[in-house]
């Protein structure tokens, strides 16, 4: 589905990605993990075309996507911080994104599901962080794109919404979509992820299933497994 080849990216003197090679398959949920500054967000943004890599290739369905823009029609993206033009109302924002990017279908269902009706006429500045994140989810999930990228999607969500999010992700997976997710909540990873990518200093330290990761570190708990990796790397 999506293939990253020898991806390099540096910000000035800092090398953030040092030759990443990875393939994400259709119908799989991959959690991208790693400590702060390991290159998770840079990798995701490279795939989205928001960060321009120094070298390497990114192929989506065997098509090189670097420098082009139409392929983004195949991606739904939930960004990390949900900040929108403050003067817009929720309904207007949704209408606007639908206007800019045709093909949205189930926004009404999502609004119902996430109980956003009372907020539709409110301005975005007036919303709480959690509500804004819900709006953010609507904006991404209302499109039927084969690749879904979620950057810290749980931020600010209440438990009820979290359960809904998990259901939504599971539903999309069932449709055979490729899903990439970054998060710091290991429970979520254990619960939904098929595979884990662990990035460390711009390199792939580990790519495999959760079970394989446990095996490799010898720790039963994912959180401890991660901690073990970090301990080793800093030692």
């Amino acid at each position: 589905m999506i293939e990253v080849r020898k991806l390099n990216k540096s910000y000035g003197p800092v090398d953030v990605l040092k030759g990443i090679d990875i393939t994400f398959d259709r119908g799989e949920i991959t959690a991208i993990l790693g400590p702060n500054g390991s290159g998770k967000t840079t990798l995701i943004k490279s795939i989205l075309g928001m960060v321009i890599p120094n070298s390497g290739e990114i192929l989506l369905d065997e098509q090189n996507v670097l420098g082009s823009w139409r392929y983004r029609d195949k991606i739904s993206y939930v960004p990390q911080i949900a900040n929108f033009p403050g003067n817009l109302k929720v309904a207007e924002l949704i209408r606007m994104i639908r206007d800019i990017r045709p093909g949205a279908m189930n926004h009404e269902k999502l609004i119902d599901l996430l109980k956003l009706q009372p907020f539709l006429d409110k301005k975005l500045v007036a919303l709480s962080g959690g509500t804004r994140q819900k709006v953010n989810l609507v904006l991404a999930f209302m499109f039927d794109a084969p690749l879904i990228v979620l950057d810290e999607p749980t931020a600010g969500l209440d438990p009820v919404a979290l359960i809904l999010l998990k259901q939504m992700i599971a539903g999309e997976k069932a449709k055979g979509k490729t899903i990439l997710i970054t998060t710091h909540i290991m429970n979520l990873v254990e619960e939904i992820a098929d595979k884990v990518v662990f990035l460390l200093d711009g390199l792939i330290y580990f790519h495999g299933t959760v079970a394989e990761l446990r095996e490799k570190t010898g720790e039963g708990n994912l959180e401890k497994a991660i901690a073990a990796i970090l301990r080793d790397s800093y030692a």
Binding site: W69, D73, R101
Partner: peptide, 17 residues
Amino acid sequence: YSSREFTELLLAQPLKR
């Protein structure tokens, strides 16, 4: 500066920069 996040939202859409 204040529309930076909004810009990022747009950048993730199928639009030319």
